[in-house]
């Protein structure tokens, strides 16, 4: 098992956002967490990345308890996050943004090869390589955030609301790319999404989060046929 999270509790002051959530991800899986706004989905990703502290529970990655490790140490162990609303470095150029993603790995990876591979995946980034990040459109910034996370060759990619703010066509392309990275390169992913249809379509398994607890979990294909999921998240027309 690549990641095992047990009894996860996350609080914002007195408000409990996640209460006792358990989940696991095996190597090569693409797992989704779906839920309505405020269900606690992003909090889970942030806790796995080490941005938010866990009030209770444990996070075990590659057999090691990382619950108390800071986020930069988790990143060095191979966990990378594509954050909600991209959070690129606005004054750094596209190339410099990518280089930040390679921090500490220069000697271990072929920089030119990695950059060329990403420019192949996201041609617009190659065109804008010398432009400051803030001059990119929302969609381009999202692509840059994904590229920045991928450049290090992570073992586990955490993807937070990647479709937010993207036009539908671009969102579809991003989901297709994530699926491709998972199937062709075996990249393990934990995807948090409000767009339940799109995320369930590309996932192997999924968890349905409601008010901080797991309401349902199982194979993504099975969940797509579940009447509760159809009613609440997909809409009957998805049938």
């Amino acid at each position: 098992m690549l990641l095992e999270v047990g009894g996860l509790h996350i609080s914002y002051g007195d408000i409990e956002a996640v209460c006792g959530f358990d989940f696991h991800i095996g190597e090569g899986e693409l797992v989704s967490v779906i839920g309505v706004n405020g269900a606690g989905k992003s909090s889970i990703l942030q806790a796995v990345m080490g941005i938010l502290p866990c009030r209770k529970g444990s996070i075990v990655y590659k057999g090691k308890d990382i619950t108390s490790l800071p986020s930069h140490e988790r990143a060095r162990m191979g966990i990378r996050l594509v954050p909600e609303r991209s959070r690129i470095f606005p004054r750094l150029t596209v190339y410099e943004n990518l280089m930040v993603g390679l921090y500490g790995l220069k000697g271990r990876l072929n920089v030119g090869e990695r950059v060329d591979w990403l420019y192949g995946l996201f041609p617009v980034l190659a065109e804008r390589r010398e432009q400051p990040g803030r001059t990119l459109s929302g969609g381009e910034q999202q692509q840059l955030a994904i590229a920045r996370a991928l450049i290090s060759g992570p073992d586990l990619l955490l993807v937070d609301e990647v479709s937010m703010g993207l036009m539908p066509k671009l969102a579809d392309e991003v989901f297709r790319l994530l699926r491709q990275l998972n199937t062709e390169q075996g990249l393990t992913m934990l995807l948090v999404e409000q767009n339940a249809v799109a995320s369930l379509r590309i996932s192997t398994r999924a968890y349905v989060l409601e008010t901080g607890t797991c309401a349902l979990h199982g194979d993504a294909a099975e969940l797509m046929g579940n009447s509760h999921v159809l009613d609440v998240y997909l809409g009957r027309e998805a049938k």
């Binding site: 080490g50 941005i51 986020s71 930069h72 996050l81 954050p83 959070r87 470095f89 290090s152």
Partner: peptide
């Protein structure tokens, strides 16, 4: 925060 998720202390 984004820098720390890139492995920077």
């Amino acid at each position: 925060q984004a820098a720390s998720t890139m492995g920077i202390s």
